[in-house]
Design a protein around this nucleic acid. Structure first.
Lengths: 338, 338
DNA sequence: TTGAAAGCGTTACCAC
DNA sequence: GTGGTAACGCTTTCAA
């Protein structure tokens, strides 16, 4: 493998000059620069990343920690991060830290401590106290996507607002008996779930519908929403006329459950989600759109700025979600009861 | 940051001894080893990965290239890989090489050439000729998950067999007019699609049903399957009584389309998929199960063996898929025609 | 504008 | 069993 010494030799200059010529830092005459670059391409020179890291203290690599890879939101964020890093020639090292798994402890104890990265993006991590300490102890800039994060910069959608808008949309359509499906005490989306639940509650209260507030717990997955909605809708006497899903996956699960029970959407049941999941269109789901891919890209932006200037002030980006109207919601049809 | 020199000093030994004591290679007395380890934990010593890489030539990192992150199969494989690496203390650097994207070229030209890894796992890559050359030029072991891969070791499901079994299952139920949905010429799953299509054709031919062979092209996604099936089923005169989906996502899309058209599954239409996707259960989809997570773990196994012994013979692992019967398939009901 | 040489933090060879 | 020391491949002063 050709090293910088070979390049220097071929170009007839010293290693120092070759290094400067290739990295673009420091004075080099146009002529020598050209000669060095020529030699480099000729030899197919590729700098050794470990040598560069050792000498500069920079890894040119960003770490990403997330609890799930196989969920729409996380995969999209990851793609956004990846794309933004790719454009800048930075590598991405992935850590899959499943909540409560033995592997998670190892990641925090060993992997992250290795500092194989110049900065870290934590997606939906919801770290417990000890983990937060470990993160800050790393001494590298950190940006959270989703999550409360007082300690780090944060990029996220305004969850409270999104849920409020979703609920208000249903209220405007004349619904009163509106249930919220999704989220459970032991969910690892805890923070997001709670923000959204709070938004729903807020909207209900403000409309004087506190008596109708109803929260059906569920796993935050499509099957989870299916199961929870099946329960919720099973009791015909006390059935809501509309559902706010904590996210599209849950909302779609609820729609499928409704169909199985012979409850027509939207004539007998309106459903609204939050996300604008890739399946939302297919299910004609009305939803509040967030674009996780953009959140991922924004997180990279913020992180790189902090790497550049470690004293930079923390950024807290909360993006608004936009209502996308499809046909899973409809005005409350002439009701049987009041 | 404490370096190995500090550890050595605190333990009262040389750097060389400290290194041996910590890495476990070479002779060190029990007593000194204990003393060194104690000093290390005391100082919170963490070796510099770049220094280690530079000295050993090993990065303790595995590269993973895949074209999509947001599809069930890929996400599952990635989780399997991640888990297997985690157990061994190895890092994972991710390269998201979308087919035809400008970024893809960069990945092959720049990123992979950096060799920031001891070995590479390529998932469903379908590389074009130039890319294959670039991969082999890296000079590191490579394992493909899915894909033709003559040049590398391969871990995959037996696609031909899976599709054949799926088709045979329908034939045994009395179906004759069986269509295959999924895959298109410009699909980037090309190889898998074709294997499965071939399996379907094979089974049809063997049962003397060649005249019924019908391939509805579609994107290999749930919405893709939906659209293709909507077309296919729209023409009531020439409608198949059963569908083989190239994968579960397509099959589920087809089921949803059927429902929209008022075609009951399974009484009026049987649908079988391949995958056992996380949604298969919820849709009661009969399918041929593959476990991508295990494929990912197996790929790691093979790769590490090849890293250990570069002269090792290539491995070609083709796992069989198992039929999981649910209720999306049923015997052909007393037919109107044919 | 260029070059010599000193790191960067490990490992590994070779004496002792 | 242990310690000195030369790599590993690059960047970065500091002189020239």
């Amino acid at each position: 493998m050709a090293g910088i010494a070979d390049v220097a030799a071929l170009a007839g200059v010293s290693k120092a000059t070759a290094s400067r010529a290739l990295s673009g830092a420091g004075y080099v005459s146009q002529a020598t620069r050209a000669r060095v670059q020529d030699a480099a391409t000729r030899l197919g020179y590729v700098p050794s990343t470990s040598a560069v890291s050792l000498a500069t203290g920079r890894t040119q690599n960003i770490g990403v920690v997330m609890p799930y890879l196989n969920r729409w939101f996380f995969a999209e964020v990851l793609e956004g991060i990846q794309q933004a890093l790719l454009e800048r020639g930075l590598d991405l090292t992935l850590y899959d830290a499943k909540p409560g798994s033995p592997g998670r402890a190892r990641i925090f104890d060993d992997f992250l401590a290795r500092k194989r990265f110049d900065g870290l993006i934590a997606v939906g991590l919801e770290p417990v106290d000890r983990e937060i300490d470990q993160l800050t102890l790393i001494g590298r800039p950190i940006v959270s996507v989703v999550g409360s994060g007082e300690q780090t910069s944060v990029v996220a959608v305004d969850d409270d607002l999104a849920a409020r808008r979703a609920t208000e949309h249903l209220i405007e359509l004349g619904h009163r008996n509106i249930a919220f499906v999704g989220g459970s005490p032991r969910s690892h989306w805890a923070h997001v779930d709670q923000e959204r639940l709070a938004g729903y509650r807020h909207a209900m209260r403000q409309a004087g519908l506190s008596q109708f507030v109803q929260h059906a717990h569920s796993e935050v997955t499509m099957p989870g929403g299916y199961a929870a909605a099946a329960d919720l809708l099973g009791d015909a006497r006390n059935r809501p006329t509309a559902i706010v899903g904590v996210c599209d996956e849950v909302a779609i699960g609820a729609m499928i459950a409704a169909r199985r029970l012979g409850i027509l959407v939207p004539s007998a049941l309106s459903v609204v989600g939050i996300d604008d999941h890739e399946f939302a269109e297919m299910f004609a789901l009305t939803t509040l759109r967030q674009v996780p891919r953009e959140q991922g890209m924004a997180a990279v932006e913020v992180l790189l700025a902090e790497i550049d200037d470690p004293n930079r002030q923390r950024t807290h980006l909360r993006m608004p979600a936009r209502l996308i109207m499809r046909t899973s919601t409809a005005p409350l049809s002439a009701p049987a009861g009041g």
